[in-house]
Amino acid sequence: MRDDNETPKPVHRRAGDADVLALAEGLASALGRTLDRTDLDVLRTVAESYPDVGRDGAGEVVASLKGLIDDFLATDAYDREAVLVHVRAWRFMVSRKPDKRERLKILSGLGEVRDLYAASRAA
């Protein structure tokens, strides 16, 4: 039990990041097999709230996830597994902190997944 005079422990600045990822994982796992624009939009909003969007590692994965969702929403294309691959890569980047070579390999693979749907957008 905490004494009222005791100073609360500071929350690690990355604690909110973990909450965003956990929420995104839950939303992604609840996605159906068919396109649900509302569910994708909610997942995109959660991903946007990740403070490191676009930065090295996890932030780059989140930026790719947002782009993938944008592609799906723009074309009515949809692949649940493509979303799940991105969310798993996000978790991997956060939990493992891969070296530069591994990071580039993962991002390249995610880029190939994105390219599958960019082609449908161009058609």
Rank of each mutant, 00 (worst) to 15 (best):
D39M: 06
S108D: 12
Y50P: 05
A22M: 15
K97M: 07
V46T: 12
V11N: 02
R2C: 05
T7C: 01
F72C: 01
R37H: 10
G26C: 14
D17E: 14
L23Y: 08
L27H: 15
E48Y: 06
G54M: 08
V53Q: 07
V113P: 04
I106H: 00
P98C: 08
R2Q: 14
R44G: 02
K105F: 00
D76N: 15
G57A: 08
T38L: 11
A63S: 09
K105C: 03
D71V: 13
A77P: 13
V11T: 13
L68V: 05
L65W: 02
E6P: 04
E6V: 10
R55G: 02
L110P: 06
V94G: 06
D19W: 06
G32I: 14
G67L: 04
D79Q: 08
L73N: 00
D76F: 04
S120G: 09
R101F: 03
T7V: 15
T75R: 03
A47F: 02
D79F: 03
D19M: 11
F92P: 02
L21Q: 13
R103T: 10
D36C: 03
L65A: 01
A18F: 14
D99F: 06
D70Y: 00
K100M: 13
L35E: 06
D4E: 14
R88Y: 02
L65I: 06
K9L: 14
D99V: 06
R101S: 11
A18S: 14
L84Q: 12
V53C: 08
A119I: 11
L73K: 10
E60H: 02
L104E: 15
V61F: 11
E81K: 07
R91I: 03
K105V: 14
D79L: 04
G54P: 11
L21S: 02
A22Q: 15
V83K: 01
S64F: 00
L104Y: 03
D36G: 12
A74C: 03
R14G: 06
V46A: 10
H12L: 12
D52M: 07
S108N: 12
H86G: 00
A122L: 15
I106Y: 07
E112W: 10
K100W: 09
